[in-house]
Simulated assay, not measured.
Amino acid sequence: MEAPDLRYEIVVYWSDEDEAYIAEVPELPGCVSDGDTYTEATENAEDAMRAWIETAVELGREIPEPKGRRLQFA
């Protein structure tokens, strides 16, 4: 399998409840990671994206093309 395209948007925020940074990948449903630091959360999100894509391939599911930036500012 060739290296997956990881140009998906990652949304990172602090969670008081989890006491960690949460990194979500909105274009890949259920693709979420966390970390003690912002950097760790984004690095973990890249691992989560790879795992999400690998699982989708194994199950024969469609992998969405990365749209990139979802929010446009005026």
Rank of each mutant, 00 (worst) to 15 (best):
V11D: 06
L59Y: 07
A48D: 10
L28M: 02
T37P: 01
M1C: 07
R50H: 12
P66S: 07
G68L: 15
A20P: 01
E19N: 14
K67M: 08
T42N: 06
Y38G: 09
E43H: 11
P66I: 06
T37K: 06
A56D: 00
E19V: 08
E24S: 13
E19M: 13
G35I: 00
E9G: 04
A51R: 08
W14T: 10
D5H: 08
D34M: 13
T42Y: 03
N44A: 09
D18Y: 07
N44L: 03
E65P: 00
A51D: 07
E40D: 15
V57K: 14
A20D: 02
I53C: 06
I22H: 06
I63C: 04
T39R: 13
Y8G: 00
T39K: 15
E9C: 10
E27W: 05
M49A: 06
Y21R: 00
V25P: 00
L28F: 05
E27D: 14
L28D: 00
A51G: 09
L28P: 02
V12D: 02
L71P: 01
R50C: 14
L59T: 08
P66K: 02
E19W: 05
D5M: 12
V12Y: 02
E17N: 12
V25I: 10
G30W: 02
D47H: 09
E2N: 15
E58V: 07
E54A: 15
D18N: 12
W52V: 00
D36Q: 11
E43V: 12
